[in-house]
Every structure is written in structure tokens, then in C-alpha cells.
Design a protein around this nucleic acid. Structure first.
Lengths: 238, 238
DNA sequence: CGCAACGTTGAGGCGTATCAAGCAATGTGG
DNA sequence: CCACATTGCTTGATACGCCTCAACGTTGCG
């Protein structure tokens, strides 16, 4: 956990203050949230929530990466979404979690007891409006991913994934110059396969193919250099 | 459009009164909605909204079936969801429609001018809470479909689709007896293919295969008899 | 009737899954 | 410090499911 934040644990220095569910709260509302929040951490690989569990809390990802996932009985798995810092976990008004949530890296959550949070929603339009807005964004993301899963080729899937990671982790102030970009993959090959509806071998082969064509360069297992982002975007199929 | 409703157009006799976005409104709130609603109809095959269009209205499906769909430049199409009576179209707070909405059958919408509806949301927690609840349901539906698109076989996809239609159109009071069920498909083979991430030929072949095995029987193009629903559910992969 | 829209069926090919082996990096216990 | 296991990834050979292309059947309608 990071410096100033780790010491004070104050919302003022929270890294997700302006993007999370509390983004549009005024100082008074924030003070209420501040008084009921607790931090919880999960180690890489550990479950945060199991489907069918009773959900006792809701919360925001502050640090780390988690995944939402769903399985078939025979072991086939589909990742439904990445949960990155500022993303919200939990459903006010629902008894049980619909899907598994797994910590991919070490994860820190800013949690609220579910009952208290529900009361707060009812009395704080700023929070419920923000929650609706975030839910609609998630819905759009899920639907965009449906197009990928249903209609894109393995090659397009990999390219789309890389472009998405670049977008979500790059500094928007860096402008659109044709400089090479570098990203750090938050997922293993296996986790990418589960997210893209592929096998691990196909993921690996597509990386190799893109590398041979010079569309990307690999640095270790997790580093990817994108010398020509527009070209990769083209391959992604937009 | 139906009898009593067609005459009075009163919310009291509206067939979706208790499931739509207005479900939890009290009589006062309903009166406000009643005063600003207008009905619009669309013929089968016509677009209701184009992606990128400016959205001037939001509304609920009262009669008919519509689809949300997204396309790639080369013509590949993915249907993102069915819009059946009581489903909501539109995004308060958004300028533009993210996806195309097409009328599959003749469709009747109960519409509200978008600006007025947004004002209403801000002042009517019952509506915004209901909207959040419906959005979360849609999110779950989209994520369930991601598992289907990413990991299920053609056979499982068809079975899942049939079970889903049975669930959404059967009378829940009919109980769970092992009586044969009969459903009417709301989609052509092509529309099913677009929804399931398949081609029209594969859809047709899977129907034929399930028919040969006695899992279903076909009555004309749209009628399907399901003699053993648990068996079909088993094939669907739950 | 003739045509159009929708659906079915067949032959063949392609893309991805499956199965299997091997490599590199890292860890572990004797 | 070496022998050995483990984990994550890559690569190859082969199989198979679904797509593509093409022809034909069925139904409804001007």
C-alpha cells in the first residue's frame, strides 16, 4: 500500500477518491463514509467472494487486480470482468453474490458494511446516482465483451485486450503521439485465456504471431511494447 | 395492441405496470409519469434507435420484441440482448445510444421525453432505485451470456436459449410438473444465430439434431415442443 | 405462377482445441 | 550447491467443431 495513504488512511489522499463510488460526494457525505469504512486485504490467488455466499459487505478496489468469474460444472471457466482500482464490488439490495471474485494480485478493498451502505444509498442521492452511472458503464463493458466473445477471432481478441489494457493504464495526458507504448500485463496467459474465451495455447501462439510481425515486442512474461498503437487498434477490429 | 388497454391507455390497465421501471411508484408518482408519457409504435424490421444517435427519449417496451445489437465494420453482428415487454430502453444521463435497437416484431413503447425523465429521477427515489435494480439485472444477464458465448458449444447454446425462452414466457403458476412445454420462438434462425454467436446453418443443424434425438419437436418454423424440460436443461449445461 | 424470404442439408476447409513434449525461471530439501 | 520439482510459457502434431459456400426445399404472397 502506498505512502501517504498508508499512514493516514484518509479519504483526502485516497488514490481512487475521484473515480470510485464516492466520487461525487461532498465533504459532509464523505465524512459519513469515512466513519464507516474499513480496509481489507486479500493475498494474490485468494477468493474475495464465492458465488452463493451471503454478502456482508460491499466496497471499492483501492490497490490490485481482481476478476469476476463464472464456471461450468466440468471446469470450463469464463472471466466476466476485471476489477481494477476504483471498481466497485457488491450489490446493494442483493442477498448473495452472483459470481466468484478472485484476487489476482494482492488486493486492498475499502469496505462498507452492506446494511449501513444500503441505508446510506437511500438517503444520499449522490451515491446512488454514482452507483447507477458505474453500473451502466459496467453494462456497456460487458456488452462490448459479448461482441468480442461471440464474433472476434483469436487474433482480434488478443489485440483488443492489449489495446484495452493500454487505455486503462496509460496516462491520458501522454497525448496521442506515435511514440511506442509499454504495458505491463495484469494477467497470466491462463487468466487471459479465461477472459478471452480461448485456451492458453492459443493465447501464446497469437502473442508469438504478433511478435513475429513486429506488431508487439515482449519483455519478459508480463511486459509488452506496442510500437504502433494505431496498427494494433486496426487489428483489434474497430 | 390489446383491448382494454388500447381504449383507455391508462396505467391502471397497463400490462407491464408491475414489472417496468414504474413498478414501485405510488399513485402520486404514477400520475406524474402518466401525464408525460406518450406511446410510439415501430413496425417489425424497423430501427428504434441507431448507435450514435442523439437519444431524445427513453421508454419501456409494452408489446413486442426488440433486440440490442452491435456490429463490426465487415458486417459481423452480435445481438447483445432481447428487449421484451417491461424492459427499459435508454440511458438517463447519456447523450447518445451506445448500440442499435431494432424492432423484431411490431413494437409499442411507452416513452418519456429524456430531459423530463431525468428531472423525475432526481426527485423520485422510487424510480431511480428501480432503474438501478433493473440495470443490475441486465448486467447479470449480460454476464451469464458471456459464459455462453465464450465457453459453450453450439448444442449447449441452443439448449440454453430454448430453456431461457421457456422461462421467460411460461406462466410460473404452471408448476414444475413433467408435462410437455410448448414455446413460440420470438426470433428467426438468423436472429438466433446473431444472439448465440453462431451461423444460421449451425443453428439449423442443431435444431435438427435435437429433433432427431427426441429432445424437442418442431411445429412449423416458430413452434417448439419440449417434452422433457429437465433433459433440455441438462443439455444446456447447468 | 413466379418470386422472395426463410430454412435445411451437404461437402469441404479453416481455426481453434486437445494432447503432448520441452524450455526457462524459481524454489526446495538433502 | 546440486538434483529435482514446480510454475508459467512455448511449440508441434493432430482432431474436430463450426464456418463457408452452394444447392435445394418450403411457405407465403403479389
Amino acid at each position: 500500500m502506498q505512502l501517504a495513504f498508508a499512514k493516514t488512511k484518509s479519504c483526502d489522499v485516497c488514490p481512487i477518491r475521484h473515480r470510485a463510488v464516492c466520487a461525487s460526494c461532498n465533504p459532509d457525505e464523505l465524512a459519513v463514509l469515512d466513519s464507516i469504512k474499513t480496509y481489507r486485504t486479500f493475498e494474490a490467488g485468494q477468493p474475495i467472494l464465492f458465488a452463493e455466499d451471503r454478502m456482508s459487505f460491499v466496497g471499492s478496489v483501492v490497490f490490485g487486480t481482481a476478476t469476476l468469474e463464472q464456471m461450468l460444472e466440468d471446469g470450463r471457466k469464463q472471466t466476466l470482468g476485471l476489477l481494477l482500482p476504483s471498481d466497485f464490488i457488491g450489490r446493494p439490495g442483493r442477498e448473495r453474490a452472483p459470481y466468484n471474485v478472485m484476487a489476482i494480485t494482492d488486493v486492498t478493498l475499502c469496505c462498507f458494511e452492506k446494511r449501513k451502505f444500503e441505508e446510506l444509498i437511500a438517503s444520499t442521492p449522490h451515491i446512488s446516482q454514482r452507483l447507477l452511472e458505474m453500473s451502466l458503464d459496467e453494462l456497456d463493458a460487458a456488452r462490448d465483451w459479448m461482441l468480442l466473445l461471440g464474433r472476434k477471432t483469436a487474433r482480434e481478441k488478443i489485440a483488443t485486450f492489449l489495446v484495452m489494457i493500454e487505455k486503462r493504464t496509460s496516462d491520458p495526458r501522454d497525448g496521442q503521439g506515435i511514440v511506442a507504448r509499454r504495458i505491463e500485463l495484469p494477467l497470466t496467459r491462463e487468466a487471459m485465456a479465461d477472459y478471452l474465451g480461448l485456451t492458453i495455447e492459443t493465447v501464446s501462439r497469437q502473442f508469438t504471431a504478433l511478435k513475429k510481425e513486429g506488431v508487439i515486442a515482449l519483455e519478459g512474461k508480463r511486459g509488452v511494447v506496442i510500437p504502433d498503437l494505431p496498427r494494433l487498434t486496426e487489428i483489434a477490429g474497430f
